[in-house]
Structure formats: C-alpha cells, structure tokens
Design a binder for these strands. Structure first.
Lengths: 195, 195
DNA sequence: CGTAGTATTGAAACGGATCAATATCTGTGG
DNA sequence: CCACAGATATTGATCCGTTTCAATACTACG
C-alpha cells in the first residue's frame, strides 16, 4: 500500500480488519479527546507494526505524516498464522515487547516536569530510531511542532520555547523546522538522560 | 515462593534469571533515578507477569508491598517452552499486549496536568484491577502515598491535597490511609474519564 | 509508650498553560 | 516564477496549579 501524506489509514472505533507494518515513511497515531484536544500516542517509523485492536476495534486513528509504504495483513489471518507458527509468533512477541518498552519510556518522558528535558529526550529517541544515518549529524523531524507538543503532553508554545532555549544555549541547532543537529553532546546527554 | 512485605524480589541491572507471576499480594517495580528520586513504574496484582529482561538484565527493581506469593520460571526455560508451544505463547502474547495497553494508559494518566484527575484515574484503575470485590465499595490502597506520588509523577504533598479535595467535595471518602470509597459515582466518572 | 517513618497542611516560588499579537512557511493559482 | 492565503510557528505577558520548603500531626512497630 502506498499512501500519500496526510491520508488516514484507519480511524479509531472502526472495525480492526487489518494489521499494518510500515516499510517507508513516517506516520502518527492519535486519539481525539472529548476536550477537543488531540493526543498523539506514537510516531511510526519503518519496521513498526501498528493496528493492534481492542475488542475488534482500532483504539486510535493512524495518519501518514510523509508519503508512506505499508504492508497489511488481515487480523484473522495473522492470528491464525501466529497460532500455527511458533517461530513467527516469537518474532511478533519480541516486537510487542519492544513496543512495551517504548510505551514505558514514553511514560517517563511525559512524567518529566521540565519542557526542555522532554524535548531533549524526544530528539534523542528520534536519533536512535533513525540510527542508520547516525553519522550524518542531522536528525529529521518530519512531524509538526504541534504533533510533538501533543505527543509530549505540552503546549505548542512550550515546544517552541524549549527549542529556542536549546538553540540559545548552543546545545542543539535547528537549521529549519524539520531538522535538528546536536552541537554539544555532553550537555545534551546530561539533559536527555538525567531523569 | 512466599515473600514477606518489603522484600526485594530482584534488583535492577542484575542478571534476569527468572520470570515471575504474582498469585497473591501486591508488589511494585521501580527505578532509582540519578536525581535520587524513585520512579514507581507499576503495581503488580495477582495474575500479573513481571521480570521481563532487556539485554539479559532486569530493568527495574521489584519489591513486595504486602506479603506475596509468586511463581517463577527460568527465562531460558520459558523461552524454550514458548518457542515450542504456540498456544501457550499466544496466551503470553495476549498478556504482553495487555501490559502494553496498561503502559499506554499510564502515559495518558501521567500526561494529565491536574493532580485530582490523576488520582481519580488511579483509584479507578485500582477499582477495575480488584474487580472481584467490586460490589464491596471499599477499594484497597495497599501502597503508601509516597508510592502513589512517584507512580503518578506528582509530589507526595500533591497527592495529599488531591485526596483531601476529593474528600471535601464528597466524591471519595478515605476511611483510612489504605481504603477509598467512592461516594458520588457521577462526579467521580466525570473526573476520571474526562481526559 | 515512645520513636521513626508516614502523612497532612500552610506559604512562597517556579514553570507551563493560556491568550494575544506577530512572523514564517507551504502550497496553490495567477 | 511570483504573490497570496491559510496553516504553522515564534514571542510576549499574565494566570494558575504544582513544587518546594517548613512545620505539625498521625500511625505503626518495637
């Protein structure tokens, strides 16, 4: 499946027919809260599995941020397959376990009170995720500031102020809105690791 | 395995020899942060599995809050078993998927800014967990206020003020430090669900 | 019954949210 | 290719709630 940027792959509370794996591009999953806010729960990079259902319904909405390429398989088919093939299932289990760690990490990030720290951890997370180009020092931020804000549980303005502060202190440079470059690794690590 | 209250089941960064399942009692898992704070990541109730490793090491410390009874199995043995028995593995996968949902819920809870809302969601979570005695209206809070605070990412004082506020408003009564009783279900639900 | 850990309450300060104004970017059509 | 409009982002001022520090009260265990 090739999907253009901004297209909605599935919507929350609809029948969870398919399970997806991302092979190219970046997507996000989010929930619309009754307060009108939008809660971004995850960014999906290549190799990420998504579309796990709860009671046969999708829990979140999935939307492409950049053009993306996905594989999809029917949930029933996958489950039948997993039940038959223990080795395949084990790979899948590893995947879910990894997701669990990510979710727990996310809890830690959101639990931090200071905005600069959260943004630093977020940038570090992206750096790890896209580690293929780790030597190229520029980290891509395909998502909007607003997406980052609702992912980190902060206001859009706080993100802006945090990035400005990182830049002013000479820790991270933002050549443009979708790029970050770590200038002072020592200070950066202190921020992103000192929980 | 029977363990008395306060005993440490395993310590973070030690070799993850065993995987555990709780059958009776309540435990907590936590990380000691370099800031000196203690981050409580989970409370473990009967049927909860814990001790999943990362790179062969435990990620957190597990400690009993009340006297507890556990089963344990060697990680290698379990993995070998799962690789052979797809059906058993599937049950395990379901368990981990459930844990994943819990972790995601926890992110939502911690992401809320208001203390009263977080405490309400926490109490609701406990109510669901111990749903066997749902008709008995008293909810047990075996953990200390301090544990709740570091689980919810709040200060001990904020927990105290939040419970006081819930009590003053007639929404929840706290007959003693380890019990809660929901008095006004409508208001309570509005607090705990209005994300 | 006393002591140490645990919990509550009060006052002041800090930091993020919000509201508001302005700036910058992106994509579209002229 | 440029200009324009709408979306996106930055910056400033003020407000509100949590944190922190400090003092006091409670509880559990020896």
């Amino acid at each position: 499946m090739r999907v253009p940027a901004r297209s909605v792959v599935y919507r929350e509370q609809t029948a969870a027919t398919w399970i997806f794996i991302n092979t190219e591009g970046v997507l996000k999953t989010f929930k619309d809260l009754r307060s009108g806010r939008r809660w971004v729960t995850a960014f999906l990079f290549p190799k990420d599995v998504f579309g796990l259902a709860k009671n046969g319904l999708y829990v979140r909405t999935a939307q492409a941020i950049t053009p993306a390429t996905l594989y999809r398989i029917e949930s029933h088919a996958l489950i039948a397959l997993l039940r038959r093939d223990a080795e395949l299932q084990f790979q899948f289990l590893s995947k879910v376990t990894h997701e669990l760690r990510e979710a727990q990490r996310q809890t830690i990030v959101v639990g931090r009170r200071d905005a600069v720290g959260r943004v630093a951890m977020f940038i570090q997370q992206l750096e790890c995720t896209c580690c293929d180009r780790h030597n190229a020092r520029d980290i891509e931020l395909p998502m909007s500031r607003s997406d980052i804000a609702s992912y980190l549980g902060l206001s859009l303005e706080s993100i802006s102020r945090a990035t400005a502060k990182l830049q002013r202190r000479g820790i991270v440079a933002f050549p443009n809105r979708h790029l970050a470059r770590i200038l002072d690794r020592a200070q950066f690590d202190r921020l992103s690791k000192a929980i």
